[in-house]
Structure formats: structure tokens, C-alpha cells
């Protein structure tokens, strides 16, 4: 229901802006939308009457719930059931053979008494934080730059795009080869890399992980910001120009505030991606040296599929689920479905 109302509101704002001057269209859409949200009561009234009319008028021609059943059943079976089972399995002992055996909170006490697990949580947070701290400024700058109209920028953007075509596996394998301690680039550039083994220390290994995910995902976030930067009304810059604001000031006072939504969206995606980093660790560092880069998702994989301690693995997985759900709640609270959609429309 509410989605229909939203569509309607969007239509109204659109028709309102059509009468306005072309230049400050987006600004007007904003204010119109805000007023539509603020003055909710009359809207709801109109929506209700329309709803009533539709109930009598055009109930025919509407698909029944059966249309949604196959996909929902399939999703329930292969995504929701395992999600519920992960909670159940975390209270059992199971080695992969025979039926799981109930053991109470044993897995939980064991997992949280393991210093490697505690460290893995901190490492996950560190890797996530590094990803956001490095990629956000980089992708905002690149996105704003690529939003310009010059021809060479389009060519360069096409090259920037290539990392997105590679799978995470391929990216990790590629960088592992390029940074190989014996045959890679570092072995040939001792002046920059010292002994050439970047994987030998914790700081080096974490640096490699952060760098490789930056290399892989910055183009994606650049695309998000590029779309948003193109949508910034030019009239704002023209006004700033008249007021004598320089390029730096324009960036901080116009571009950045206008990119607020895309920054929120891309940050949330980075956090979810960072918390679930797995392939990069498996292929680049195997959690090492020692357990120095064993982040939570990798720890879970180790416990379950290398140690055949599936109960403990499930407990760790549940921690991941809770973290992801918290993030998703933030998604809904901070951005809302509507805006995510309009952000996606800005892309391409």
C-alpha cells in the first residue's frame, strides 16, 4: 500500500517541478518532497479515499498472492531455513557425519574463550575501518573528477572500470602473483619494499588486504559518486562562481554536501563488504602470518570446514548474522528504500 502512495507522491512532485525553471529542478524536487512528507495528514486522507475507490473499482485485473509463492518458497527453503538453522546448529556438536548432538551453550563458551576469535573480531573491524577510511575519500575524489565532461576522462574511466570485471578470486590470485615474495614486483624493487616479503608481518599483511580491496572496490564506489556528482545542479556552481568561491571551496561547500546520500550508501556497502571479507584472506594470507589476519569470516571457515567443528562455526556465523542485521537496520533507518532506488537510477 505505502509503496503506491510513495509512487503517487513522487508523481505529484514531478509534475510540480515540470512547471518550474529547468535549472533548479532538483532543488525543487527536494523541497517538494519534504513538504509532501511534512504535510502527511492530507496526503493520507487522499490516499485512503483512493484506496477505497480502487477496492471497489479495479480489484479485477490484480494478480493474486499465488504469483509470489514460488519465489518465496524457494527463498524460504534455501536462504531463510539455513538462517534459522544456523542458530539451532550453534547449540549442537556436529562433525559433518551423523546427526548433530545437542550440547547447550558449550560452543558459545568455547568460541568466546578463544583469543583467536576475539582477535578476529577486532581484525574484522580494523579491516572494515581501513577500507572505509581509504576508499571513501579516494572514490569521492575520483567520482567527482570522472563526472566532468572532458573526453580523456571518459577513456580513463573505462580503464578504471576493469577491476570490476574480475571476480574477487581472480583479483586475489592476480595480486598474490604480482606481490609474490620471490617472483613478484617487490622482489625487483628492494628500495621500496625492503626484503620483498609483504606477507611476513602483521602490518604488511593487513596493508596488503586493505590495498587489494581498495584496488578492487574503489571503481565501484567511484561509479556511485560519479552518478551523484553529475546530478548536482550546475546553477549552484555558477552562483558560487559569482560569489568568488574557488575550486576548493566549491568542492567542500557544494559538491560534498550534495554527495551526502551517495556517501551514506557506499559506506554501508563498504561496511557490509568489509565485515564479510573472506576470499581475499583465504587466497592472499591464509589468515597468517600465524593467526595475524584471521578475521571473523575466515575463522568461521577454519572452525567448520578445516576443524570439522560445525557447531562452533555456526556460533561464529550467528555473530556475523547479527552484525549484518544491525547494518541492515541502519540501512533502513538512515537511507530508506526510496532513496536507494533513486541513487541507483542516477548510475549508468
Amino acid at each position: 500500500m505505502s509503496s503506491h502512495m510513495k509512487t503517487r507522491i513522487r508523481k505529484q512532485t514531478r509534475s510540480r517541478t515540470a512547471t518550474g525553471a529547468g535549472g533548479d529542478e532538483r532543488g525543487r524536487v527536494r523541497t517538494a518532497r519534504r513538504s509532501a512528507g511534512g504535510g502527511r495528514a492530507p496526503d493520507r486522507g487522499r490516499g485512503a479515499s483512493r484506496r477505497a475507490r480502487e477496492r471497489y473499482g479495479s480489484r479485477v485485473g490484480r494478480p493474486g498472492f499465488v504469483w509470489a509463492v514460488p519465489a518465496t518458497v524457494f527463498f524460504g527453503l534455501f536462504a531463510i531455513t539455513p538462517l534459522i538453522m544456523v542458530a539451532a546448529l550453534s547449540f549442537t556438536s556436529w562433525s559433518g557425519l551423523g546427526p548433530p548432538r545437542f550440547v547447550g551453550v558449550d560452543n558459545w563458551t568455547r568460541v568466546f574463550a578463544d583469543p583467536v576469535m576475539i582477535e578476529s573480531v577486532w581484525l574484522s573491524l580494523l579491516v572494515t575501518f581501513l577500507g572505509v577510511a581509504v576508499q571513501t575519500p579516494l572514490s569521492v575524489l575520483l567520482g567527482v573528477w570522472a563526472a566532468g565532461q572532458q573526453r580523456n576522462r571518459a577513456v580513463l574511466s573505462a580503464i578504471y572500470f576493469v577491476p570490476l570485471l574480475l571476480s574477487t578470486t581472480a583479483v586475489s590470485v592476480l595480486w598474490r602473483a604480482v606481490l609474490d615474495p620471490n617472483f613478484g614486483v617487490p622482489s625487483r624493487a628492494a628500495w621500496l619494499f625492503g626484503d620483498g616479503n609483504l606477507f611476513g608481518t602483521q602490518a604488511g599483511a593487513i596493508g596488503v588486504l586493505a590495498f587489494v580491496s581498495t584496488w578492487q572496490f574503489t571503481p565501484f564506489h567511484t561509479l556511485i559518486h560519479q552518478g551523484a556528482a553529475r546530478a548536482v545542479p550546475r546553477v549552484l556552481y555558477e552562483a558560487a562562481e559569482i560569489d568568488g568561491a574557488g575550486r576548493v571551496r566549491q568542492f567542500f561547500h557544494i559538491t560534498l554536501p550534495q554527495l551526502r546520500n551517495s556517501v551514506i550508501t557506499s559506506t554501508i556497502l563498504m561496511v557490509v563488504g568489509g565485515l564479510t571479507t573472506f576470499e581475499t584472506v583465504l587466497i592472499l594470507t591464509q589468515g597468517g602470518p600465524g593467526t595475524d589476519t584471521t578475521i571473523t569470516a575466515y575463522y568461521m571457515y577454519q572452525k567448520a570446514f578445516k576443524g570439522f567443528d560445525f557447531g562452533a562455526g555456526a556460533a561464529v556465523a550467528l555473530v556475523l548474522v547479527v552484525a549484518a542485521t544491525l547494518v541492515s537496520l541502519i540501512v533502513v533507518r538512515v537511507s530508506g528504500y526510496d532513496r536507494m532506488r533513486s541513487d541507483m537510477e542516477g548510475v549508468s
Binding site: T72, F75, G76, F78, A79, I80, T81, P82, L83, M85, V86, L89, W94, G96, P100, V272, L275, T276, F278, A297, M300, Y301, A304, F305, F310, G313, A314, A317, L318, L320, V321, A324, T325, V327, S328, V331, V332, Y337
Partner: peptide, 20 residues
């Protein structure tokens, strides 16, 4: 339900998926 599913990472369900 599907909106909720957006946030579920594959890593989180891999153990029960193996079981299923």
C-alpha cells in the same frame, strides 16, 4: 522478507547450507 534477505551474507549461512 526479501528486503531483509538483502543483508544476509552467504558466509553466515554456509554451515547449515552444507548440512542441508
Amino acid at each position: 522478507l526479501f528486503l531483509l534477505g538483502l543483508a544476509v551474507p552467504a558466509q553466515a549461512v554456509i554451515v547449515p547450507m552444507f548440512y542441508l
